[in-house]
């Protein structure tokens, strides 16, 4: 199936010389929830802002729903809703007016029924006549979401949707995202909270210093999450492993001084007993052993850590 968002070889160099994105290529499938994970300054917002038309790309090609975002920007942008990271709202306008304004801006005729539904979904309907500046931070965040949904987008970008948001709103937000997915809306969110990606996403992409370094199904990542490694520190270095150990698929550590065994914690049998028995039979002695679990967090930290 044709991806709904297709990014090819996208680069961005700001006037300041900052290289925010380097050759990013990414396809987002229709109807999926994609989490873009990365530390601050990795280029998440730049990526979103380019797709939405706020920042001009230096290089590369982006299509949304098959429409080029530059030459066919009207068709492309009509499909996109954006909830920005900052609480950038008007102050004096009323909630109802500002949400209706957004709908008009995207070229759609007035539809009070739709605006009403959006406001009710976001628990904003009671506040529709309030001026935005009278609202709390959480309510302003809801207003921004309502504005993004006012024109019935097919692709919704949520830039750090839960930064500084209370538990209730966070849960409301997830309910909303799920409901949107049921309606066939594609959701792309950025976050630096791993739990958020775990909780919501179908796929996770990790971005570091302007490069996408990993894109994977969340289930696949979770499978890795369920793995443990047993490291055996050997008394004597081994050269080649005896044939009798082949079935354990061991990795030999540096200099042959350790053996690494990977096993599923969720499996019924870990195979550790058998391994240790076979090791004893082969006459391989070890001085110490330890086990470690690779969490998504570890994977992430490992991936984004700067290697000096």
């Amino acid at each position: 199936m044709q991806p709904i968002v297709s990014i090819a070889n996208l680069s961005k160099v700001y006037a300041s010389g900052l290289h925010a994105l380097r050759g990013v290529t990414l396809d987002i499938a229709k109807g999926e929830i994609f989490a873009l994970l990365g530390p601050n300054g990795a280029g998440k917002s730049t990526l979103i802002n380019i797709v939405c038309g706020i920042v001009t790309p230096s290089e590369g090609m982006i299509r949304v729903g098959g429409h080029d975002i530059q030459s066919q920007y009207r068709a492309a942008r009509r499909m996109i809703g954006l909830v920005p990271q900052e609480l950038t709202t008007d102050a004096f306008e009323k909630v109802w007016d500002t949400v209706s304004f957004s709908r008009g801006l995207f070229g759609l005729p007035r539809d009070p029924g739709h605006i009403e539904r959006v406001l009710k979904d976001l628990a904003l309907y009671e506040k529709r006549e309030s001026r935005i500046m009278q609202l709390s931070g959480g309510m302003k965040r809801r207003v921004l979401i309502a504005k993004a949904l006012a024109h019935e987008p097919k692709v919704l970008f949520l830039d750090e949707p839960t930064a500084g948001v209370d538990v209730e709103l966070r849960q409301d937000m997830w309910r909303l995202v799920r409901r949107l997915r049921e309606q066939g809306v594609t959701v792309i969110l950025t976050t630096h909270y791993i739990e958020e990606a775990e909780e919501m996403a179908d796929r996770v992409g990790v971005i570091r210093k302007g490069e996408i370094i990993l894109v994977e199904e969340k289930v696949e990542l979770m499978r890795k999450l369920g793995k443990k490694q047993l490291t055996l520190h050997l008394r004597e270095p081994v050269g080649t492993l005896p044939e009798s150990l082949a079935r354990h698929a061991l990795q030999v550590g540096e200099g042959g001084r350790s053996l690494i065994y990977t096993y599923e914690t969720r499996g019924e049998r870990t195979g550790i007993t058998g391994l240790l028995g076979d090791l004893a039979d082969a006459g391989i002695a070890f001085t110490d052993l330890d086990t470690s679990q690779s969490s998504l967090e570890d994977i992430f930290v490992d991936l984004v850590r700067e290697r000096a």
Binding site: Y73, A75, I80, E86, D90, F106
Partner: peptide, 14 residues
């Protein structure tokens, strides 16, 4: 100044 320009820039308008 307020940052709300993002919406105008991201809208399908010339």
């Amino acid at each position: 100044f307020a940052g709300t320009i993002y919406e105008i820039l991201s809208a399908p308008i010339s």
